[in-house]
Computed example of a mutant assay.
Amino acid sequence: MNDNEQPKLPDLNTPPRPQHDDPGHEIVNREGQIVLPGYKSVDAGHESTEPLSHSSAGTSSALSVKALILTGFGINCEEEFAAAYKLAGAEPTIVHLNQVLHGHVSIHDYDILNFPGGFSFGDDLGSGVVLANKLRYRKNAEGRTLLDDIKQFIANGKFVMGICNGFQVLVKLGLLPNLSGNVTPEVTLTHNASGRYEDRWVRLKVNPKSNSPFLKGIESMEVPVRHGEGRLIIKGEETLAQIEARALNCLAYTDFDGSPTDVYPHNPNGADLNCAGLTDTTGQVFGLMPHPEAFLSLYNHPDWARRKRQNPNLSEEGDGLRLFRNIVEHVQSQRQTAATPQEATQFSS
């Protein structure tokens, strides 16, 4: 390379191209257009070769629940997310974020939009900051941002879930807790009070006043955390009071007795209100720092053998799966309720 030549760097704003070491990630047809595959493997380690199009979300039964799971740019928990939805009876689809940004996939074809954990953009400017800004400011050909579409998605009665890095993105976007309704950041997530990355199991208590369908019927759960910036900071007594009054602090870190605590390591990051998760005022947007998708089976737990010996009838499902079952059943219930009047009209005619 001559001294005057500029290095050819990849353009992160262009759709990813097929990789020889990753067959099936994308397919390019004869016209040079990218055809998307279905969701990546949640079993057998093989990606689907079935093409994914805008209309593919409408080919399933009327009551099927479709979950869109975003990946790319350092996100790395998409497979566990997909496995959770599959076990809960939904249809998961994993796509690279660029496919949404470039209009190849519409979030409106799905019921639940999901932001998995990982290290988007390497956490270089703080966890979730760069990805949140990309969603807030990058405009498509129609002049809309993905945040504009997400706001419409929520207004249409659909659901958004973010775990760990995904939670950080939702907070930095202002979608959580969104007290004002203006998607302006009102709280933040920053470095753990311990000053180090935390990788441990924690106990959580569900706020009984929460209106989120994700948490319906759940009183407590045990799940792992693995984060370096999970400390929720709530600036201002008024904001804190509103969050408490409206029960948006939906999950709290607890001690072994089930009491909310700020004592380390039961509270692994020193979060205000001992808060491990938030919802927005509608209950449709839900985010949490711990990883429910990492506890789908009893055998994910490090103490499963002793617990199973003590209680042979112990369920083999992990605590985290209940969150996914809840939201899938809730969407199915909504579909059934909406379909009933129409079915009754068809029957009477």
Rank of each mutant, 00 (worst) to 15 (best):
H266R: 04
Y39T: 14
R325I: 08
K216Y: 03
H227Q: 06
N192L: 01
R30A: 13
V28S: 11
G32N: 05
V169L: 13
G318W: 06
K308D: 09
A67V: 15
G89P: 12
Y253T: 00
E50V: 12
N29K: 09
G287Y: 02
P116Y: 12
E79I: 11
A67T: 15
L52F: 12
S259P: 01
L323V: 07
L12P: 03
R138V: 15
V129L: 12
K216H: 12
F295S: 07
I112P: 02
S220N: 10
L323H: 02
R30S: 13
I27E: 11
E26V: 00
E329D: 14
V328W: 13
Q342M: 12
N156S: 14
C275I: 05
Q334P: 07
H330D: 05
R196K: 14
G24R: 01
H102N: 13
H291P: 04
T254K: 01
L248A: 12
I94W: 06
T59D: 12
P213H: 11
G157V: 13
P92D: 00
G103F: 09
V28W: 13
C250W: 07
D272C: 08
L9C: 04
Y264S: 08
Q168A: 13
V160P: 01
E31C: 05
N192W: 05
G45R: 10
V65M: 05
G277E: 08
G236Y: 15
C77T: 04
L173W: 05
T93E: 10
T49L: 08
S61K: 15
N326I: 09
R307S: 00
S127D: 02
S259K: 13
S212Q: 01
N156M: 14
Y85D: 06
L296G: 00
P92W: 01
F73H: 13
Y197E: 02
A84M: 05
P224N: 00
E31F: 14
K308V: 03
M289N: 02
H104I: 04
D11G: 05
M1T: 10
L314W: 13
L278Y: 13
S120I: 08
K8L: 14
R335W: 01
N192Q: 07
G58Q: 12
F214R: 05
R322N: 04
T190M: 07
L68R: 00
N326E: 08
N269Q: 08
T254N: 07
V105W: 07
D148G: 08
N313D: 15
E26D: 06
H266G: 01
A82I: 07
F81H: 11
Q6W: 03
H46W: 03
Y39E: 11
N165T: 12
L175Y: 10
R136Q: 08
E317L: 11
T279N: 03
D43M: 03
S348G: 05
L248Q: 15
Q310N: 15
A245W: 14
V223A: 01
Y110N: 07
G320E: 01
P18H: 06
E343T: 11
E47Y: 09
L125N: 07
N165F: 12
E80Y: 09
E79L: 07
D124K: 14
I112L: 15
D111A: 09
V328G: 10
S55M: 00
N13D: 15
A141T: 10
E31W: 10
V169S: 03
W201K: 09
S333W: 10
